[in-house]
Amino acid sequence: MTDSEKDRYRLNKELAQMLKGGVIMDVTTPAQAKIAEDAGACAVMALERIPADIRAAGGVARMSDPQMIRGIQDAVSIPVMAKVRIGHFVEAQILQAIDIDYIDESEVLTPADDVYHIDKTKFKVPFVCGAKDLGEALRRIAEGASMIRTKGEPGTGDVVQAVSHMRAVNDGIRRLVSQTEDELYESAKQLQVPLDLVRYVHVNGRLPVVNFAAGGIATPADAALMMQLGAEGVFVGSGIFKSGDPAKRAAAIVKAVTAYNDPKILAEVSAGLGPAMVGISADEIKTLMAERGQ
């Protein structure tokens, strides 16, 4: 990396640090983006259809229309993220050209490449990527991701996969921390990741980038659960705009992420929210989005 590439990567990791303790909400229109901002979202994710609808409709899910994304950029003052298909570096070039704040190379969309992820080091704009375990997280970071999130199982309203992915990443971190220096070479080999990243985790006991939870979070309690399990913030997709009262639920989830350790506040914000998204159990579905991109 050149000095200016190093500066850019640091600045991109630092933007993720500013999002910590916050909620990033999926939105499909400028009106929803405004509801999200007013409810206290720290960023919005602009996409054509929310994951539950992508799941229901089937077919190929792609990057959103840039015109729609611009409409959302104009509607809010908080950062605007958008998704590209795994491996679709041209969709990423397009989002960079419209000055997006963060790109999510996302398994929620239909993968464009079944082998390679995007070489994210070639971009100035930051990327967030999903991971099911420590190996995936570090592989994405090696490719240039400046933020990580659990994959979870998007569009289900079932938090079980997000929980297991967060636990798997933490378990992987604890293993590396407890290893001796000479054991790290074998771990790098097994995890299929560069040794310097393995060393970083061994010494610091954490990922070198911010780590959020995503995929199946539908209630304030789900969000607080992920925070207590070590997430530094949460993405909420279908959970908000598939529920009975999106504005109220969005605001409640924001408060739950701030007060994740305070059961009294969690009880208050969980009360009277109306129906949550109906959801679908993660083991009843055919398409496991989390299996896309290893």
Partner: peptide, 10 residues
């Protein structure tokens, strides 16, 4: 640092 809209609202 963070988002002023979030902190202000909270």
């Amino acid at each position: 640092g963070g988002e002023s809209t979030v902190m202000g609202k909270l």
